[in-house]
Design a protein around this nucleic acid. Structure first.
Lengths: 252, 252
DNA sequence: AAGTGGTCTAGACCACGTA
DNA sequence: ACGTGGTCTAGACCACTTC
């Protein structure tokens, strides 16, 4: 009958394809409102659930986001560049040679939800820091908010025995931060390792970062080593993937 | 009436929470089959679409994946470690000090879908390589398949004028690969930059990498620079985020 | 007040995988 | 052959945003 699939694809996919292509062509720019459920129902002659599924596809893909009672809108991106290896900045590799547009900071960054606690070490952290499982660690956790949007959760772990009595156990660590304090304690970091993963966020992460559907998180686990190879800090960071581009420079 | 929400949350979320918690507690291990739609309908007394929504949540979160006609199953992960800075391997930062388990290769890697073409440079690539927009570039694209699972798509871009007539334009680039050939041509790479992002995959990417729902991709754009600061190669890579942990080492 | 997306029901038919 | 998930309909009520 007239209810043919037009190519074997499900209806909701075809509708999603139409919208995606229209977005790609610029018919709907960043922030623009897409046709709503009711409009898709009448225009494509489908039930509400089918129109919903089509819009759901675009949200799952991270292309669109819904605002309750308002509509479904095309998402806009403005990532920030995070340089893993600042020391190597310099003229040589500097100016305007990056493939992804990423506005560097003329933006408003505030730190939030700061907490310094002492907790038993999680297994993996204990392993990396070469501590007994459950040994006490100082955990410094905080949230970074850029232009009103939370973008990063960080939790730094250090051996409680190592940092006892130092400013590292206080909210304000003083000039130079915890690395300066570690240096004063004779544990100056000389080498860093960052491990990067990506996955979909947990509910908790999604809530704390105000993530919209279809937005993965990047996870950076940075380990700081002293010159003699001891791990002194493990910093687990959770980043809104729509807000960050990570950059790493190194020589051949 | 009896149709209370049990806490203001929608039913499908409550059902998803129950399942997620059961997975976390190990009631359902990696690869285990979760209760199906019919079972959830009778056990929780909901309609099919509601049970479906609950299972859909877990798939969107990347915790579960559905197999048509078979059921919904808990996902298993076995990422591979990718070292960005191999030269710095060494004893000092080596042994067993990584936070994420990641089996290094005793696994079967094959390269696939190799194609070497000449195309007009995409805008961003032209900008980075300092070419005129649309100038011809040699594009070397290929796919990496690990233990039968596609894990990486790579597309390397080089100025066509720069590499004309060399082995770089052939499928087999010979010993040492394209970097050895570039060195012979007087354009030896001395410095690298990698930019890392993450987002949900396009349909095309999802298809070529056989990704299940709820799996983001990581994007690495690596630029190779000669000692005098000219960009000679731009390599755009698309990685299955469930298959990779990226590692970067650098000194303070 | 009107329109929007969010949730939910109770059916239905299909393609697929397993046995 | 049977059970599974995949798609779809045609209703319904709600909370929310916008005007």
């Amino acid at each position: 009958m007239a209810t043919r699939d037009d190519g074997g694809q499900p209806k909701y996919r075809r509708i999603a394809d139409v919208l995606r292509e229209a977005i790609r062509l610029g018919d709907y720019g960043p922030g623009a409102r897409l046709p709503g459920e009711n409009e898709l129902m009448t225009e494509h002659g489908v039930a509400r659930m089918t129109a919903r599924q089509a819009l759901g596809v675009l949200q799952t893909e991270g292309i669109a986001e819904s605002r309750k009672g308002a509509g479904v809108f095309v998402r806009a991106f403005r990532p920030v560049r995070r340089r893993g290896v600042q020391r190597l900045s310099g003229e040589l590799w500097g100016a305007g040679r990056s493939i992804w547009a990423a506005d560097i900071e003329d933006r408003d960054l505030v730190v939030d939800q700061i907490a310094v606690t002492e907790e038993p070490a999680p297994e993996r952290v204990a392993h990396v820091l070469d501590l007994a499982p459950g040994a006490p660690v100082c955990v410094r956790s905080r949230r970074f908010v850029l232009d009103g949007k939370p973008v990063l959760l960080a939790a730094s772990h250090l051996s409680a025995a190592l940092v006892a009595g130092s400013a590292i156990t206080r909210e304000d660590t003083g000039p130079g931060g915890i690395y300066a304090r570690l240096a004063e304690l004779g544990h100056e970091p000389a080498h860093f390792r960052e491990e990067v993963r990506s996955r979909m966020p947990s509910q908790e992460e999604s809530r704390r970062l105000s993530l919209s559907a279809g937005t993965p998180v990047m996870l950076i686990c940075r380990t700081a080593f002293t010159a003699d190879g001891r791990a002194v800090e493990v910093n687990e960071m959770i980043l809104d993937s729509a807000s960050y581009v990570l950059e790493y420079d190194f020589d051949a």
